[in-house]
Design a protein around this nucleic acid. Sequence first.
DNA 1: CCTTGACCTTCCAGTGACTGGAACCCTTAT
DNA 2: ATAAGGGTTCCAGTCACTGGAAGGTCAAGG
Lengths: 128, 128
Amino acid sequence: MNIGQIANETGLPAKTLRYYEEIGLIQPGRDANGYRVFTQADAHKLIFLGRARALGFSIEECRKLLALYEDKDRASSDVKALAQGHLSDIEEKIRQLEDMRATLSNLVDACAGDHRPDCPILTGLSQN
Amino acid sequence: MNIGQIANETGLPAKTLRYYEEIGLIQPGRDANGYRVFTQADAHKLIFLGRARALGFSIEECRKLLALYEDKDRASSDVKALAQGHLSDIEEKIRQLEDMRATLSNLVDACAGDHRPDCPILTGLSQN
DNA sequence: CCTTGACCTTCCAGTGACTGGAACCCTTAT
DNA sequence: ATAAGGGTTCCAGTCACTGGAAGGTCAAGG
């Protein structure tokens, strides 16, 4: 399959597939005309990658997940540790965003939002 | 004040202050020796910026906030609109992260995490 | 007077994970 | 012959810094 077809099948942009090859996540073959040739195994791998990325795993984490996935002798504890680490990261980010939301929504609620210049949002950002 | 002192006072790294000058957020003066000279007004502005950045406003949003802050004829509705837009972004990000957390924590919970290779996390990422 | 150390300066490169665009090649249909 | 719709490479840009190199400035100590 050519890059366009695999892009369709996996939902990943062709640009991304080229990038993944460049950084060594995938190794598609080449046709006589220089076009990349993707197998069904590549498609499978790419769907795996797409899912992992959608769960917020970094590329390097994806690389490790892929290695574990392909290592039939892995210990599931290794996978679990990686996933739990990432889960902690996500939870930390959620906490930070919730802090921001709390502060910001207080400021927004306090602001009249009319034609007058007085604004608790601005004074909240500048004061104290 | 020199850059080091202002960095101390505002909690922002000197590198960041130079960057903020480069992109036109601040315009410190210069001493005869070429050193940047910061006033108390600069410090005030930088603290404002630091707070806005800590609330997740982008640099461009900060630029607008600063302009509104310095425009004594602004309408508070303009500030509120900006802040509400950002608040929506934050809430959207929280939603996405919570989705990730839900999926990921299901997978993690399903994984035994022992020496055996069977791993619901990997199968969850690869299947269907 | 010289040196040391702590400042400061500029400029360049790298981060992560793509994304856009230019310039060009290949294939098929008209 | 040409046009459309694939594909290729390579370079630049994104965002908000951050690290580092090479060098200038300043105050204190020997």
